[in-house]
Design a binder for these strands. Structure first.
Length: 111
RNA sequence: UGAGUAUAUCGAAUGGUCGCAUACACAAUCCGUUAAUGAUUGUGUAUGAGGAAAGUCCGAGCUCCAUAGGGCAGAAUGCUGGGUAAUUCCCAGUGGAGGCGACUCUAAGGAUAGUGCAACAGAAAUAUACCGCCUAACAUUAAUUUUAGUGUUGGGUAAGGAUGGAAAGGUGAGGUAAGAGCUCACCAGCGAUAAGGUGACUAAUCGGCUAUGUAAACCCCAUUCGGAGCAAGACCAAGUAGGGAUAUUCAUGGCGACGGCCCGUUGCUUUCCCGUGGUAGGUUGCUAGAUUCUAUUGGUGACAAUAGAAGUAGAUAGAUGACCAUUCCAGACAGAACUCGGCUUAUAGAUAUACUCAUAAG
């Protein structure tokens, strides 16, 4: 992801899960933790319960696209993990985007 | 026209805006410089998931472990001939089973090497007499020279009844006290002979006269098989701390490596000297290969040979997406991770070729 640094290490994921705050809605769950930098790290998690590899790949791309289109409106300086719930396996782009924006406003990462 | 059989092909299309990965070109900046190279950013161009990418069921390439050694154990395969790098794959045939047919299916060596199993039923399950049929002796009844019936005991009989997946050849005729391959004809099975075929096998003649099934039960026979897998392996190398290389000597010892066991091979152990080994991480392996297509020739065919042409996925928490518009049959199964050849499984629908059956017409 260009200009969007992604979380890669398993340790980074564990740190956010253990120390970070979380919030969820119908389709997605968010974990976030301040990282004291001037950019965000985004991590995505879609479990095998959601569907086969085609479905999982599609959900991941939809979330990434939603994040990319709204990146300039989100506060900087956080490690963010987005988890897709099982229910999201039949969602389209608009409902994913709406759910993501709802989460961002709830946890006050929205500028 | 309808119903089918076989083989092959395709797997929504077009345009616009934004975005991602890789390669190339150009520009800028940085490091460094004899030069090349390298890193970051921007712009442009090109390319960017499948027929199964899947399951990981076979077989190979490639890499490391010893140039992959001997025996046992274990595993796999199992009609014949051929193809291939190789196979449990493919092609052509043989036998058997199914279908009116095109065609399909087939784990198809050995049951006189041995062991085991065959429930229930049935008199009896690998040897058998329950009923029945025939007959001898004795007893008894009728009748009385002799014959018929009944009972007991003994013998003959596998035609008939009944059970079962299976009752030891089948059908018909002769034959007999009643019966029986006891005899004959046809059929089936077994053995031998010479013939055809590379072979599985085929059809012919002759002979004797009968042998339960099960080997995806153990087993026997024949053939084949070393292990681990790209998280293989190679190179560079923070932090941390303690091991490595060379030469020599001794012990049939100890620890380890070579899939299990035995053998066999081999490394370390001691002293001296030196500074290196390697974790995180990075680079590489990483995509041109037994490749695809077309033509010709050889072959029934799988396939082979020759000639010409085509040819850019290569990520590493993992790129191929989002939105809009138009069209139609309204889009199924499904996402590359070292690479190939097969098999199996999932799959909306569309197309082509050859053939079969039925109906109609002729």
């Amino acid at each position: 992801m260009k200009e969007t640094f992604s979380l890669k290490k398993n340790n980074d994921f564990k740190l956010v899960y253990n120390r970070g705050k979380s919030f969820g809605n119908r389709l997605l769950v968010i974990y976030y933790l301040p990282n004291e930098k001037d950019y965000n790290n985004l991590g995505l998690s879609v479990s095998k319960k959601v569907g086969n590899s085609v479905v999982r790949n599609r959900i991941r791309r939809l979330i990434k696209e939603s994040y990319r289109l709204n990146e300039d409106k989100i506060k900087k300086g956080y490690n963010i993990i987005i988890i897709a719930k099982v229910r999201s396996n039949s969602a389209d782009f608009k409902s994913i985007e709406k759910a993501l924006l709802h989460l961002m406003k709830k946890v006050k990462l929205w500028q």
